[in-house]
Simulated assay, not measured.
Amino acid sequence: MTVALGVRAPSFVHLSRLTDDTGLLEHARHAVARREHGYCTDDVARGLVVTSRERDPAPDVLRLAETYLGFLTHAQHDSGAFHNRLGFDRRWQDEPGLGDWWGRALWGLGTAAARSTAPWIRQEAMVAFTLGAARRSPAPHTMAFAGLGAAEVLRREPGNTLAAALLSDAATAVGWPDSDPQWSWPGRHLSYASAALAEVVIAAGQFQQDVALRAAGLRMLSWLRDLQLDRGHLSLLPASGWRHGTPRQRYDQQPIEAAALADACATAAAATGDTGWNDGVRQAIGWFLGDNDRGTVMWDPETGGGYDGLTPLGANLNQGAESTLALISTFQHAQRING
């Protein structure tokens, strides 16, 4: 496949448009931020992931990372849990908890601690990661996101026992895939960002040198990717998910699914040395470029924003934080595989 050729470096222009001195505004109407919806830790954490992944960040990107890190440390309670929703009036709208936002916060903090080019960001992120990594959630998705942060820390500090325990517990929370080749997945329901579950199992198998565990994660990912291929392009699972034995709906497809698949395939390629996994990354990139069920380009080159979803009528033209972050994350992989 060649769909990734010619993809330019990810643009942070729209992300900057959605970011103020407090954090990252969650929603937009077309390209204009909707302040009435405020901020959420989920998106700010993903913002810290993508800004920390930049190998040579421009000053404005580094400033975004600092803003996102400041938001997360403010959101974190002494217990290690996190608030999720902050109103535009700068008041928290919830109590600290261990939902997906806790997992994604640890993912962002772990990535910053491992990859940021700024020593002060790495240091502060590691302090917050350490506080949060002592907690656990019963939810597989939440633990998967936290485990991905732990895997980042372990790539920089292989002897970090706190991160190693969190990554191991994350893989345990996800579980093993069913032996049925027609449904090679833990549980009977596929929901959101499913590829992240396979990715954390692959990462855990790699760090634990557990060949069987790594193979289980690779089997999950291969099955999930094949499930979402239609005549060579990605036909992503819809936001409603899919339960075994029920009819599968085609829409509304979300950019987060393409980004999660790109991340997982990149991890599989690194873990195995098999560059064939990069085809999955290219297919995720292709989904944004219009190689999808509607033949619709899923981002706005003029603004740098990602569209919020693929509907039966084409793109949802709103350019919120989650979709823009998914776009940036996926395009970051394009730079790696295109050399």
Rank of each mutant, 00 (worst) to 15 (best):
M143G: 07
L154D: 08
R155V: 06
R136V: 02
P59R: 01
A65C: 14
P247M: 09
L227Y: 07
P57D: 11
G290S: 07
H14M: 09
L221Q: 02
A170N: 04
A81G: 03
G241W: 05
L289N: 14
F288H: 04
G280P: 01
I328F: 11
Q209Y: 02
H77L: 05
A260S: 15
G305Y: 05
D263G: 08
V211Q: 15
Q228L: 06
H141T: 10
G23E: 09
D42P: 02
L86A: 08
G132R: 02
P181G: 10
G306D: 03
H37F: 13
P138G: 09
H14K: 05
L148I: 05
A269T: 05
D42R: 03
L197R: 00
T19A: 00
R122M: 11
L236T: 08
L64Y: 07
S52I: 09
W223Y: 01
T246E: 15
G23I: 04
L98I: 12
G276C: 07
A259R: 00
A75P: 05
D226Y: 05
L229C: 10
E152Q: 14
G306K: 00
L197S: 14
W223G: 11
R35E: 14
T117H: 12
F82K: 03
H30R: 15
H141G: 15
A81K: 06
D60H: 14
A258K: 01
P301N: 08
T246N: 12
P138A: 10
E322V: 07
A266W: 00
A139K: 12
A195G: 00
Q209I: 04
A212V: 09
Q332R: 11
L18A: 07
A58L: 14
A203G: 02
T130F: 07
A45C: 11
V297P: 04
V211L: 13
G339S: 04
A198Q: 13
S137M: 01
L221G: 00
R34M: 15
W120M: 09
F88A: 11
A134Y: 04
F88R: 11
W299G: 12
Q283W: 04
F331Y: 12
R219F: 06
T324A: 10
A114P: 13
Y307H: 13
S52Q: 14
M1Y: 14
V201H: 01
A171H: 01
